[in-house]
Amino acid sequence: MIREKVVKVQGNYRDPGLIERVSANFRKFWVDIKWMNVNCDNNNNCILYLSLYDRYNLGNVDLSILTLSKMVDIDYVEIINDYNVKNFELNYNNSERYEWGEKVEQSAWQGIYRK
């Protein structure tokens, strides 16, 4: 049995609950999400790519996909058979950090963690 599958999900976006429900669907089946990439356009169409992993070898991946496909707001789920993922890349050089409800001054963390 193939333990890792990459899927594309198209859903209707009302609020972030869409992503919550997609993740919860897999959580219930004990299917892990290794990574996820979500993009929503101005017409509330969301495309989610997820890499699903059957960590515990329970054989639930297919049923979890079918079950997701019958959820309100989900238009379709596509299993991608021939995927080839390069790093989803995000470039930046300015950010602010928060920890436990507080802003952490740049001087306190910059240069320590940031490469």
């Binding site: 009302r14 609950g17 219930k28 309100v72 707001d73």
Partner: peptide
């Protein structure tokens, strides 16, 4: 309400 309703219902919606 949405958070606690999602897992126990066919659908839950909060009006905006």
């Amino acid at each position: 309400t949405l958070g606690v309703s999602f897992p126990v219902s066919k659908y839950a919606v909060e009006l905006r």
